[in-house]
């Protein structure tokens, strides 16, 4: 598998905490102070009770592979050159499922239920933003 440089992330004020956290090497999720729901994707309100009283917190970064696919065909650059790559949902310890890639492992060795930890790829950018893309790799 060729090393993949992920396409640029675009953030709104609602979502930048996640991407800035990733740039620090942290998996940042949101928690509602009113009803304690942990949510992802980040947004301006709680998706359970619509409260606006939300906090960001640093999650453990640990999870398991919920399901995955080894992608053999994607015409869109830069993915075309990166095939085969592993796209997956990871079930985080805190609850939310994240769409992600599994890296650092032979695609044929990935299994549902495999323990994984967050892995961060910083983005080279010219717009002053410091963001990273969250992937997961097998837990040690």
């Amino acid at each position: 598998m060729a090393d993949l440089t992920h396409p640029k992330v675009h953030a709104s004020w609602e979502t930048r905490g996640y991407w800035e956290g990733a740039a620090r090497g942290e998996l940042v999720l949101q928690r509602c102070r009113a009803c304690a729901t942990v949510q992802h994707k980040p947004r301006g309100v709680c998706a359970t009770c619509l409260s606006g009283d939300l906090e960001h917190f640093v999650a453990s970064g640990r999870g398991t592979v919920y399901t995955f696919t080894v992608t053999h065909q994607n015409q869109a650059p830069p993915f075309a050159a990166a095939c085969p790559y592993v796209m997956a949902y990871v079930q985080t310890e805190e609850g939310p499922r994240l769409l992600t890639h599994i890296v650092g492992v032979d695609p044929e060795a990935v299994q549902i239920g495999m323990a994984v930890v967050a892995d961060f790829q910083s983005q080279e950018r010219t717009d002053g933003e410091q963001f990273a893309v969250v992937r997961f790799r097998p837990a040690d």
Binding site: H6, P7, V9, H10, T15, K41, N74, L99
Partner: peptide, 21 residues
């Protein structure tokens, strides 16, 4: 099989970096 790039929508950024097809 041709999706997964180019969107500038912040909501899509939770998919587009991963080449979701």
């Amino acid at each position: 099989t041709g999706m997964g790039h180019g969107s500038r929508n912040p909501w899509d950024s939770f998919q587009s970096p991963y080449g979701m097809t």
